[in-house]
Design a protein around this nucleic acid. Sequence first.
RNA 1: GCCUCUGUAGCUCAGUGGAUAGAGCAUCGGUUUCCUAAACCGUGUGUCGCAGGUUCGAUUCCUGCCAGGGGCGCCA
Length: 576
Amino acid sequence: MSDPISTISTLLEPVFAELNDGEPADPTVRPSDRADAQINGALPLAKRRGVNPRELAQAVVDSGVLAGFASDVEIAGPGFINVTFSTEFLTSQLASISDDPRLGVPQAVVAKTVVVDYSAPNVAKEMHVGHLRSTVIGDALVRMHVFLGHDVLRENHIGDWGRPFGMLIEHLIDLGEDVAADGLTQGDLDGFYKAANAKFSESEEFQVRARERVVLLQNGDEETARLWHRLVDMSTAYFDAVYSKLGVLLTDDDLVGESFYQPLMGRTVERLSEAGLLEEDDGAKVVFPPGFTNRDGNPLPLIIQARTGGFNYATSDLTCVIDRVERRGADLMLYVIGAPQQQHLQMVFKVSEMAGWLTEETEAVHVPFGNVLGDDRKMLRSRSGASVKLVDLLDEAVDRAGQAVAEKNPNLSAEDRAEVARMIGIGAVKYSDLSTDRVKDYMFDWDRMLAFDGNTAPYLQYAHARICSIFRRADIDRASVRNSPIVPEAPQEHALALRLLAYPSAIDATLQSFSPHKLSTYVYELASDFTSFYEHCPVIKADERTRSSRLALADLTARVLAHGLDLLGIEAPEQM
RNA sequence: GCCUCUGUAGCUCAGUGGAUAGAGCAUCGGUUUCCUAAACCGUGUGUCGCAGGUUCGAUUCCUGCCAGGGGCGCCA
């Protein structure tokens, strides 16, 4: 790995082990604001061995392993070792990544089959801000796992089955298929759903028809199936349009809806029964996973088959686990689903373990996230109080970005401006979602996310555009500078170099916790380090040797910046 | 009642078993014969919700409490 912190950490391990009678001891190397890195491991080790920490720190320094990497090493305070990396060392590390398409990030040692479950809108229902987080976070996690060389299976678990489909199909018939199709493809899904729902609550005759239609659907009636398909197709075409606007990787090939699991659920129940887990409780078939209690302190069941004989989402989710493990060969399953589902998923995972479907070799992880809030600190709603349509949100973002671009850079052609506005607007929405810790709620604020200062997509994109601009101005092909040595002499160059080399660590930390905001923070710090460099270190006007070094440093920065943004699903324009 | 998440600067948010807890915004003050000033530089800001405990060292780990959100059987 290119990161100097991990490089010296690895080199120090044997030194620490030797000072600990051969037992491994963590050197605890961290970035530091007093130097480039601080080695903290001497303190706990000295305590454990009952020796003076400063003397132990001295012994670490005397081992000589830091000599080849550091321009300065000092023991400070009770026994911290502060290390400043030498320019020569940074130059050599940068040389190893500056012409590397992977930018120093190693492939995963073991390629896993990773299933990512995300987005999951409902057929005949509008996509709203609630779907934004799952879709955007899931997409980023997919991109990162793919980059590391894992075999990633995207799964969009759409709601395409269940009781509401009786009423939806009947409403489709009432409207006339083609009339309905017009409205639905234009994205008026909410209108359709609400009208069906209203009829259902008003008309007994309609209720009867809807219920009969559900039975027909479940029994595989041909005409009903055709109508159902039509409904699903219209919805998925609409979803595709939204995904395309949003710029996520999901396609129709990734659709694995509720309906897919219907024919398999009977077998799931049988297998639970064969495993001796199934119990009869109040007429329902249930499993009691240990560790879950209800309001009254009694064991809480996972309901597998309702009293009426119907299956529910627990059955479906269990069947889904079986499918992913046994058919798709999943090693890791990520469920990018809102925090309220936590208990349900924990119960599903527990029962899956009890049944032997989830073993130690297969990891299932709930990747929860909080809500999108309005400035009133409540769930984001439109002025009328309705949930906000995702497409409207995205269109407004592009629109607002377009106004800003027109104002700030009138020289762009209308065509370029539209394209840049799209990148900025969509990027801003995605970045504001990805850049805060996903488990928390975040506040949706147009002005903040579209600002060109602070931790925002436009700021990052602007840094990238400025680098591209340097090369345009100098009329130099970016690829041509990738073999020039980078000699980071100025403090801003030194800081930027260190940051660039830390890219693999940032990705590693991000995937360790499935937290895209860690990569976001890294990319922001990188952009920030670059702008500081940009202000203090002239590139084009520098003398020849410095100029070629700075050009190479700028190019590398642009590539890491664009690459990091791409892993987040955000585009980096060359001018804006 | 039980479970779970959250609580860090005026605001929005990072952060870590280590040394004086950091950014951005907002405030104030500077910087443009110079590669995009959509920027940069400087400036102030804290009982890290409260109380205990573990530790050489806790904002970070553990326990309890307080406040807010979410969840807790036949919808998905």
